[in-house]
Amino acid sequence: MNRTDRLYGLVEELRAASPRPRSARRLAERFEVSVRTIERDLAALQQAGLPIWAEPGRTGGYVIDAAATLGPPGFTPDEALAVLIGLGTLRHSPFRHAAHTAGRKVLAVMPDADAGRASALASRVHFLESEDEPVLPAAFAEALGAGRVVRLRYLDGTGAESVRDVEPLGSISKEGQWYLVAWCRLRDGVRAFRADRMRSIEVTDERPPRRTVRSEDLAIQYGRLRSLGDD
Rank of each mutant, 00 (worst) to 15 (best):
F31Y: 10
R30P: 03
R40P: 01
R185E: 09
L228E: 10
I172N: 04
A98C: 01
L180P: 05
P134I: 10
G60L: 04
D41G: 00
R30M: 10
D114P: 05
E55I: 15
H100V: 10
A82H: 08
L50E: 03
A44C: 10
A44I: 02
D5V: 12
Y222H: 14
D132K: 13
E206N: 00
F127E: 12
V106Q: 02
A48R: 03
Y179L: 12
Y62F: 15
I64K: 05
S130D: 11
A138K: 08
S215H: 04
S227I: 00
A99D: 02
T204Y: 04
G170A: 05
T37R: 11
A80D: 02
S34R: 01
V125S: 02
E175M: 14
P111Y: 01
R36Q: 14
A28Y: 11
S123P: 02
V190Q: 08
E161M: 11
D5K: 13
R153Y: 03
L186A: 08
V33G: 10
G176P: 04
L42Q: 06
L50K: 09
L136M: 12
V35E: 13
A67D: 05
F75C: 00
E12T: 07
L84S: 10
P56D: 03
G61T: 03
G176W: 08
E29R: 14
F95H: 12
P56Y: 02
L10W: 05
L186Y: 10
E161L: 15
R153L: 14
H92V: 03
G170N: 07
V149S: 10
Y8I: 11
R40W: 01
V109D: 07
D5T: 13
A192N: 09
P19C: 06
A54N: 09
R22F: 02
D230Q: 08
F31C: 03
M110V: 10
D156W: 11
L169S: 08
R124M: 09
R214C: 10
R210C: 08
W178R: 04
T76E: 07
G147W: 00
E55F: 03
P51Q: 08
E32S: 15
A160L: 14
A17S: 12
M1N: 06
V190I: 15
R91P: 00
V125C: 05
G145W: 02
E133G: 01
R153A: 13
D231C: 07
E13H: 11
R224M: 15
I201D: 00
E29W: 03
R197M: 05
G116T: 03
L218S: 05
V181R: 01
E175S: 14
R194E: 07
D5E: 15
M198P: 07
N2T: 10
E142Y: 00
L10G: 06
S215G: 02
R58N: 13
R224D: 15
G103A: 07
G71E: 13
G86S: 14
E142Q: 09
